[in-house]
Every structure is written in C-alpha cells, then in structure tokens.
Design a protein around this nucleic acid. Sequence first.
DNA 1: CCGAATTCGATTGTGCGCAATATATTTTTT
DNA 2: AAAAAATATATTGCGCACAATCGAATTCGG
Lengths: 153, 153
Amino acid sequence: MTKKPGILALDNQLCFAFYSVSHAFSRAYRQFLAPLGLTYPQYVVLLVLWEQDDLTVKEIGDRLFLDSGTLTPLLKRLETAGHIRRTRDRKDERQVRIALTETGRSLREKAEEVPKQVGCVLGLSFDEVRALTQEVAKLRGRLHDSAAPSETS
Amino acid sequence: MTKKPGILALDNQLCFAFYSVSHAFSRAYRQFLAPLGLTYPQYVVLLVLWEQDDLTVKEIGDRLFLDSGTLTPLLKRLETAGHIRRTRDRKDERQVRIALTETGRSLREKAEEVPKQVGCVLGLSFDEVRALTQEVAKLRGRLHDSAAPSETS
DNA sequence: CCGAATTCGATTGTGCGCAATATATTTTTT
DNA sequence: AAAAAATATATTGCGCACAATCGAATTCGG
C-alpha cells in the first residue's frame, strides 16, 4: 500500500515548498544585504528595531520566533558592527535592552530599498502579496498552536 | 518619505512569512522525526531517494536546491546512521553515488506517517494544499531565475 | 522575610546553508 | 597527445537555529 505517494507527497511538498522558497528569498536578499554587511536574520532584527526601538532580547525574540540561543550571538555581532547597543536594564537586571545607535538608525533608508528590488521579480500584485502573506501567517499560527497547546489556563 | 512603511513592509513580510513558517514547519516535523533519529533536511534527502534510488550528490542537490557543502556532511551522517551507502562511480570517478541500504528503505513506512500528522493541524483541503504549493513553487522559480539569469547563451 | 518557583540571558554542542577554495577527474581545444 | 577548460565532490570558515543547561535576578507563597 505504499503505492500512494500522492497525498503524502503533497503535504510534504508544501513543507518543502516553504523550506526551499525561504532559502531562495534568503539568497535573493543576500546580494543586496551583503553590501550593507548584513545577513537576513540581522536585517529582520533591525526591521523590528526600526519599528520600535529599545526592546529586550525577549521582546525581539517574540516578534521573530527566535530564542536567546540564536539572538545573543547575532546581537553581539550587530553590536560589534556598531548598529546597536546592549545594556542591562536597571529596573530588572535579568533583561538586556537593545537600542539602535545613530549608525543603525541611518542604515534604515538604504535597507528599505532592498525589498523593493526583490519584490520586482515576484510578479505579484499588492493584493496578492497581502493575501499570500496572511494565508502563510495563518498556517504558522496553527503550527505554533499545535506545538504549544499549553495556554489552556 | 520614510513615513510609508506600508508597501515596503509588505514585500518584506512575505519574505518573513516564508522564513518563519519554514521554521515552524521544521519544528512541527522535528517532534515526529526525532524519534526516527532524523532531521528535516535528512528526511527530505531520504524522500528523494525513496522516489528514485542510486543518485549522485549533484542530482540530489539539484532536486533540493542544496550544494555539496551542505550535502556532503549530511550524507556522511546518513551513512553513519546506516541509511545510505556512498560509493564512487566506476565510470566517472568524480561522482559519488548515493544508494539506500535495507535499513534506509525500511524507514520509509514510518517516515510517511509524519506528514500526515503535521498535515492534520493545517486545516487545509487537498486542493488548497496543492494550489498553495504550486503558487509558492512558482515564486521560488522566479527568484531562482532572477538570481541566475546567465542561461542566455 | 525566606525559600521555591519562575523568568531572562548566556553558554555549549549539533546540524544545517552557503561562499570560497581545493583537488581530482573528465572533456574539450589545439 | 598535451594544455586548457569544465565538472564533481570535499574542505574550511562563518552565521544561523535550536535543544539543553546554567546562573543570576525577580516574583510568589506562606
């Protein structure tokens, strides 16, 4: 009965489709981000900070679905590059607050051109991009809920 | 004019949607693959081999959009685990042929249950999964074409 | 106020992804 | 056939992701 790859393969292809398109996007962004000395994960961290400055590591992680094991070294590299400052919170010494430097803020204009470049090759309309983004985000939510169905208090 | 995050953010959110849903899928698969001693990338390599056995490293890489820098160590781990055999091709000593062992073949049945489990939480119909998969694959194709527009000979 | 549980972040170790480079083997050119 | 170009894999180095663990700081329960 293993002669039914159809349904099984399809679900899988959806996962693989996301897996491979994610890498394809990463490569597409890389050619524009490399001149700025940024990787894609570093770029999305800056996107978060450009939207709201002075966040804790945890707040950044909540927005990006990343944990401290990923963010701590990444943020240290952003600090070394001069884009951010990391300082312990006075009120709660457990947290580290991340704030943009003037250098980090000034990178915003150049960085905002990047998705324009990449977006050109997608061949999607404004509405199509929005609909697809929302559909994918919905799936992500369901996967998260199934992975952590603990919030039943 | 930087007061227009709307359009810029949208393209970017599409990229981030893929980036984050890909990780979410990876985590969802992990809980089922870990008992089999497999990671998701190892799993997709086996999927390729279950579909067609005895491929070269390059052929696997072409199907998965991965290069030898990623595949060589991954395949060595699969070999150590006893799932595959790596042998130099007699005809062309440059290539390494990858063949499933009996152990690797026998893993198929259990592994095919995995996407069923994950698929349950998606809440999508067969047709919706198919349509979304194709749409995403189309985007991946466009990104690849734009990254390597060299085939103009 | 005190001890226990929780929260936050850092650290360690493993496994990708990929650029750059190296090496060996073919294939093509001359 | 010798030299040059192309091809296939391996290696190195860096940067994520993430599980597991740790230590320090805070909060909670009594």
